[in-house]
Simulated assay, not measured.
Amino acid sequence: MSKKVILLTNLGSPNSFQVRDVRKYLREFLMDKRVIDLPFLSRWLLVNGIIAPFRAPRSAKKYKTIWTKEGSPLIVLTQKLVEKVAHATGLSTYMCMRYGSPSPKVAFEKIVSENPNVEEVVLFPLYPHYAMSSYETAVEHVKQWWQRGNYNFKLTVVEPFYNHPLYIKALAETIKPFLEDEYDHLLFSYHGVPERHILKSDPTGQHCLKTEDCCRQPSGAHKYCYRHQVFETTRLVVRQLQIPDNKYSVSFQSRLGNDKWLGPATADVLSQLPMRGVKNLLVVTPAFVSDCLETLEEIRQEGRETFLSAGGEKYQHIPCLNLDDTWVNTIAKLI
């Protein structure tokens, strides 16, 4: 019976690739005010009247291409990660999802049932970088269920680890084997966010996106700036692997809607690189620690097709950290 237990939290996934389950998942995901930050009525009409009905069938087809016999890759990988973290730490370890199942409520009930003397739950968000639509919403969601349950145990939250030496080492070590063969370019593709999210998260109200080099200028805003943090992750990994400046770049994927998002867009970069002489491309997706729809379908499948159709010759998506032992040990040490 552990007095201290670990709770991993990740994005979530539909229960199946059937349209009805994907539609339900999309509604929960997109109705999150930290994802689509519009007034409730406008958000409800947009999600339920336009996005979910039309996007669900297309998304269902995409989920079907990555679904395994065990289920959703993200759910399966997180379940296996729970087992490995428990083994590495010697602590009871559980998981919950921001959207879908299992919910924080289910996780907390299981924790209390199996650990009646629990005094502390350490929440480890599986997001290296701070963003209101990922790390922040996941943490706040868990906190709300913790407060509603009036539990006796303390809830401790692990902060974003985008620049932690152990995380950088783990990420670099997963990339390194792919650099041993000849390659032209390494693309760091991060999940995109609207620029207004960056501005909303700026506690100073006067730093983010005000100048071209704002992410390189010291500021208290960096603690909450997704753009700064992904650039810093890239800088540290590139330095550790000694990758020349002309052999890597950063882009942002998974856009939704017509608002201005962080750029350049990954799809645009993939179609332009062959025209710049890049024929042999590596792509890594460090915003995700577990392979999922955005990495397996959007980058590994669609990205490959875009690059090769534009004249590229060789394309390799580098898997996420997933169940890598160095990554598991990193989680154990961060906790």
Rank of each mutant, 00 (worst) to 15 (best):
L321C: 10
R300S: 14
S271I: 08
W261Q: 06
N322W: 00
L262C: 09
L270V: 05
G312F: 03
L270K: 03
Q316E: 13
G311P: 08
D268P: 00
G311W: 04
Q301L: 15
S290E: 06
I299M: 13
D324E: 14
L293D: 09
P274N: 01
Y315M: 11
P286G: 08
V278H: 00
W327K: 05
Q316C: 13
F288S: 06
T266F: 12
E305K: 15
E302S: 12
T326Y: 11
D259Q: 15
E294V: 09
Q272W: 04
G311R: 05
V283C: 05
T306C: 07
S271Q: 15
L281M: 04
L270N: 01
K260G: 04
V289N: 10
A265R: 14
K260R: 15
Q301V: 14
Q316A: 06
G257S: 09
D291H: 05
V283P: 04
R304I: 02
G263W: 12
E297R: 03
L273R: 00
R300V: 03
C320M: 11
T326M: 14
D324W: 12
K279D: 02
G277L: 03
L281W: 01
L282S: 07
N280A: 02
G311T: 09
V289R: 06
L281F: 00
S290H: 12
V289S: 08
S290P: 09
K314L: 11
D291R: 04
L262D: 08
D324H: 15
D325Y: 08
R304E: 15
L282P: 09
D325E: 15
K279E: 07
P286M: 05
N280L: 06
E298G: 02
G257P: 07
Q272T: 09
D291L: 03
G303V: 03
V278F: 02
F288D: 07
L262N: 09
Y315S: 10
E313N: 05
R304W: 05
N280F: 05
L323P: 07
S290G: 10
F307H: 00
E294F: 06
I318V: 14
T285Y: 06
C292M: 07
D259M: 14
L281P: 08
